[in-house]
Design a protein around this nucleic acid. Structure first.
Lengths: 140, 140
DNA sequence: TATTGTTATACTCTATAACTATA
DNA sequence: TATAGTTATAGAGTATAACAATA
């Protein structure tokens, strides 16, 4: 006979707070991206192009397969927001960079996002420093 | 003539901490789900079934379209992890609930996840309370 | 007529495997 | 032979629109 598995684990108050924070952050990110007609992944890649960046590096940063970056880069290129340029020092490599339009759109995304800034603005400077400290310690 | 758009906004230290927290949380969630052969969305739905729940309610909770829930529920059903039952009081409605196997798998997911608990365990009880308080204030 | 849920469809993200070109 | 990137393909999440059954 099989015993019932029982209820799932009960989260503590801090864990719930962390969950709510992450949940709201993710939703705000997605929503801000949609507001400028980007997907979250596209906004994420676009945001990493302050400097031109190789495909392999982007894949490593985002923790996904390189073939994935190829597709996202291709779409950003079609949208006129990014451009792939040959690497003079390595014929295999290509660097992805933002176009001027891409930077404009990304800045519109940032203004639409605002989640982190708004959250932080509800805290005093001392509280902000303390929050930062606690998060860093928790992340180890 | 068009002026350059200029650099994107520079995030503050707290904002960076928030970003890192969310990023690590999301990756750990995804990875834990994969470790029990679930997608993040499937784990998310499964985790909300401590009580049977209607499709519409699930869609509202997850902030997505109801047709989306239909698909995820169908897959969870095929996997034997959840079940859709008719609602006796409303012939249109169906309630999704975890099977015993679904609860077992979800508990394995929780053990694999552990991110929030591990993070929280690096803090003293006083620090945990303070973190919780600051997050709640920041989320308003 | 409004609501719950489903189906059909299309787009995107994602990974794997096979491939091209270069190192 | 190894590496950077691409292509082909397939599974899954997502939304919209049209639909069935019920309220």
């Amino acid at each position: 006979m099989t015993l019932p598995s029982g209820p799932v684990r009960q989260a503590s108050e801090v864990e719930s707070a962390l969950f709510d924070l992450v949940d709201q952050y993710d939703r705000a990110y997605e929503s801000a991206a949609a507001s400028v007609s980007l997907t979250a992944a596209q906004a994420c890649v676009l945001g990493r192009l302050d400097q031109p960046c190789g495909m392999k590096q982007l894949a490593a940063d985002l923790g996904c397969d390189a073939s994935n970056i190829t597709q996202i880069a291709a779409r950003l290129e079609i949208l006129g927001l990014a451009r792939r340029s040959p690497d003079p020092s390595d014929g295999r490599a290509r660097a992805l960079s933002r176009t001027r339009e891409g930077t404009k759109v990304y800045r519109r995304f940032e203004r639409a996002f605002g989640f982190a800034r708004a959250a932080v603005d509800r805290l005093t400077p001392t509280e902000q420093a303390r929050l930062s400290e606690l998060i860093r310690k928790a992340l180890n």
